[in-house]
């Protein structure tokens, strides 16, 4: 349930902020989210990846629908792709992998800090 919630959170951030920020912004969102919130690494990967991918796909399909796929089909021709769907998939994968890597970094950052906290004598050590 927590993973699902985090997927939604990442997705919401990507959906509302990514269109105004650099292409690697899903990475930034995931770094922040998963540095702040404790989760298992596998779940971090899943939530960061799927949240970014889904939001990205919704965004590209919204843009493409409003444009009646005029540009995406022409761009597919430029890149020798047989269908403009691939452009949605590539965009989503770039966002997804960026998010996933960001999630990994955020998770690693948190683990690094959390270990330090647990090592603190005030908390009684391990």
């Amino acid at each position: 349930m927590k993973t699902f919630g985090m997927t939604i959170l990442v997705g919401v951030l990507v959906y509302f902020l990514h269109p105004f920020l650099p292409w690697y912004s899903p990475m930034i969102f995931s770094i922040i989210v998963f540095a702040a919130i404790e989760m298992k690494l596998g779940n971090v990967f899943a939530a960061a990846f799927f949240g970014s991918v889904l939001a990205s796909l919704i965004l590209t399909f919204q843009i493409d629908t409003a444009n009646e796929a005029i540009l995406s089909s022409r761009m597919a021709g430029i890149f020798d792709l047989t269908s403009s769907i691939y452009l949605h998939v590539i965009t989503a994968l770039i966002a997804g992998i960026s998010g996933m890597l960001g999630g990994f970094l955020g998770y690693s950052f948190r683990r690094m800090l959390v270990k330090r906290r647990k090592d603190n004598l005030y908390y009684g050590g391990r």
Partner: peptide, 9 residues
């Protein structure tokens, strides 16, 4: 180029 912000979209 694939970016939703700076890219072709």
């Amino acid at each position: 180029i694939m970016s939703l912000n700076e890219g072709f979209w």
